[in-house]
């Protein structure tokens, strides 16, 4: 079955991203297709590669990146929400005249239309948030 996932909270502050990850992983391991994981609101903060969590804790950002690599998972960060919160890829950083970018491997930045499309294409939409 084809699922889409919406993550509305950032890493560490709320359990939402952890739960979304565990759900997504379990779905993939059961042989389901995850059409897309869309990160919105503070959820866009899951996509910064500059996080440095303590070594004895999970690395939420890397965990998503690795899952993306393993399953060719589409991780999309909302551009409008990302711009508000300082999450930029190389092109956006250039376009906005910023001196740096911070998008992690496996994530891409795109518009809200990708969330609607995720709802249209998938048979189920599951929301994780606060």
């Amino acid at each position: 079955m084809k699922f889409s996932v919406l993550v509305n909270e950032g890493p560490y502050q709320h359990q939402a991203s952890d739960s979304a990850y565990q759900f997504t992983k379990a779905a993939l391991e059961k042989g389901h297709e995850i059409f897309r994981v869309f990160f919105y609101h503070d959820g866009v903060n899951n996509g910064t590669r500059l996080t440095v969590p303590p070594q004895d804790d999970r690395n939420i950002v890397n965990r998503w990146s690795e899952l993306s690599k393993q399953y060719n998972l589409d991780l999309v960060v909302c551009i409008a929400a990302a711009q508000r919160r300082g999450i930029l890829d190389v092109n956006e950083a250039k376009r906005q005249g910023k001196d740096s970018n911070n998008l992690a491997d496996g994530f891409r930045i795109s518009g809200l239309g990708q969330l609607i499309e995720a709802g249209i294409q998938a048979e189920r939409m599951v929301v994780f948030g606060d």
Binding site: Y40, H41, A80, A81, G111, L112, G113, L115, I116, E117, I120
Partner: peptide
């Protein structure tokens, strides 16, 4: 506010 932004895009689709 951000919900409203999704609603407007959803209508465009």
């Amino acid at each position: 506010l951000e919900s409203l932004e999704v609603v407007l895009i959803g209508a465009a689709f």
